[in-house]
Design a protein around this nucleic acid. Structure first.
Length: 481
RNA sequence: GGCGGGUUGGCGGAGAGGUUACGCACCGGAUUGCAAAUCCGUGAAGACCGGUUCGAUUCCGGUACCCGCCUCCA
């Protein structure tokens, strides 16, 4: 059995991982608010958890792991977009417009995460499907003396939970001293947070004991994780920015609703993403979505490679230079493993690296050492979700012939034709010692993007990413005439 | 103001209290008509100041700088 060690935010330590039930390992990842395309930062926790899922599947068996990731489809940004569409003259109701917006966003999200090679979770609950469970949990919290209704709202009373602040290492008093919290008049304590809030007629709402309203942001994850994973489960995670307030508040809600349960045993948080050394932001002009990168010619598995080449607990800097280097490496590995059957098991050192707090850079370093064993390289790379079947289309696209004539002949035939002719010309040059024609031909082929290898025995032409196949065909035709 | 993360060789990026990370780049050699590719090989690090230790880049304390959170945020 592989020993898994994970850094638990709750204890600030790297600990041996022991599931509550080895036959039913359960984890929950905070998913996206579905108001717009996923940006690059959204992809990081998804990929971290995807690697974790593969590890757990490997160790405990795929039938014994349950992975839940929610969609937050109750949110003011979604409401704003729906209201904008309504104002723009849509005939649909506000509710339908919200469904329309969230449905299309979820479809985008699926397409983008699929492109990165991330497996779909077993459950992808939408907040709107669990309103009843949220209301029930809020009622329990009120009954337990941890929440109170005031002015149409229901608030969580942070002073009723002595552990409040433990996950994020903050104290209520310190935070209040920071004086950055909005103090609504109906709050008993400035740090109290909303469990339920009233909705006007032009906002989506559900009937509740406190009137028509909608849930606060945090309660959904408490309610959905309980519904799908139980009151205690193994791993809960997300970006480090969620540590406070989102996860702190989840802990407060779930632990107070179920004082005898553990809620999440292990908390996993990934560090933030930067772009070219700076925070990704629209104002800096370095904000982009996963789709922007994919459409910009970065294959999904190349993006994945870049993401995995930095450990999840360190800030990750996205640069185009890294993406270019990753693309070259993936291209090499794809070539090495073409038509190769994967080994039955990944290299144990790769599994070991991942088991050691998801050390993806360490695992990639092992991969580099497997060039002489393509079958093992393939199996090990797939363990990380790289070199997966079907994901290599980007390379095939590069290898495919764009020119109709070349398509008819096949690029391999075209190259073979040039190679044969090149051999003759070179043989003549060897005799005459006049290499000018050889050099001219070589530079023409190199300029077209091919790699030209001249061994003693023969000339070999190798396709590279971005080879201009029109020019290659042109050269072939020129030589033939 | 409070809390947290980071700082490793030209660049990227890990582990480990003492022995080569690894990748890319560079340099040297083999090879080549010249190259490319390939193979072999060399060099290069741990922000700064203290402390613990036989020994620290790795542990502890402090300083500097960078980043993030405390408000919607992965």
């Amino acid at each position: 059995m592989v020993d898994i060690r994970l850094t638990n935010t709750r204890t600030r330590k790297k600990e041996a991982f022991t599931p509550i039930d080895a036959h039913d390992v359960r984890m929950y990842l905070c998913g996206p608010t579905v108001y717009d395309r996923a940006h690059l930062g959204n992809a990081r926790p998804v990929l971290v958890f995807d690697v974790l899922l593969r590890l757990l599947n490997h160790v405990y068996g795929a039938d014994h792991v349950t992975y839940v990731r929610n969609f937050t489809d109750v949110d003011d940004k979604i409401n704003a977009e729906a209201q904008r569409r309504k104002a723009a003259g849509s005939d649909l109701s506000l509710e339908d417009l919200i469904v329309e917006r969230t449905d299309e966003t979820i479809a985008w999200y699926h397409a983008d995460m699929d492109a990165l090679g991330a497996a779909r979770p077993h459950h992808e609950p939408r907040a709107t499907e669990y309103i009843a469970q949220m209301i029930a949990m809020i009622e329990t919290l009120i009954a337990n003396g941890n929440a109170y209704a005031a002015d149409g709202h229901v608030l969580f009373d942070v002073r009723s939970f002595p552990e409040y602040g433990r996950l994020s290492g903050r104290s209520v008093d310190d935070m209040i001293a920071g004086a950055r919290v909005e103090v609504a008049p109906f709050k008993r304590d400035p740090m109290d947070f909303v469990l339920w809030k009233p909705s006007d007629a032009d906002l989506p709402g559900w009937d509740s004991p406190w009137g028509r309203g909608r849930p606060g942001w945090h309660i959904e994850c408490s309610a959905m994780s309980e519904a799908l994973l139980g009151q205690s489960f193994d791993i809960h995670g997300g970006g480090i920015d969620l540590q406070f307030p989102h996860h702190e508040n989840e802990v407060a809600q779930s632990c107070c609703a179920h004082p005898k349960a553990e809620f999440a045993r292990v908390w996993l948080h990934n560090e933030m993403l930067q772009v070219e050394g700076k925070k990704m932001s629209k104002s800096l002009g370095n904000f982009f979505t996963v789709r922007d990168l994919l459409d910009g010619g970065n294959p999904g598995e190349v993006i994945r490679f870049v993401m995995l080449s930095t450990h999840y607990r360190k800030p990750m800097d996205w640069t185009q230079a890294k993406a270019d280097e990753a693309r070259d490496i993936m291209w090499e590995w794809r070539k090495l493993t073409r038509d190769v059957q994967p080994a039955a098991q990944p290299d144990p050192r790769v599994v070991e690296a991942i088991a050691n707090d998801l050390n993806t850079p360490g695992a990639i370093a092992v991969l580099h050492g497997l060039r002489d064993d393509p079958a093992l390289l393939l199996a090990s790379a797939r363990f990380l979700g790289l070199l997966q079947q079907g994901d290599g289309d980007w390379m095939n696209a590069d290898l495919q012939v764009l020119d109709s004539l070349a398509e008819y002949r096949g690029i391999d035939d075209v190259l073979a034709q040039i190679e044969a002719r090149f051999d003759d010309i070179r043989a003549e040059a060897m005799q005459s010692k006049d290499f000018s024609r050889v050099d001219y031909l070589k530079s023409a082929l190199t300029d077209a993007g091919l790699e030209v290898r001249m061994s003693k025995a023969r000339v070999e032409l190798i396709l590279r990413p971005g080879t201009n196949q029109h020019r290659v065909v042109g050269i072939a035709d020129e030589l033939a005439s």
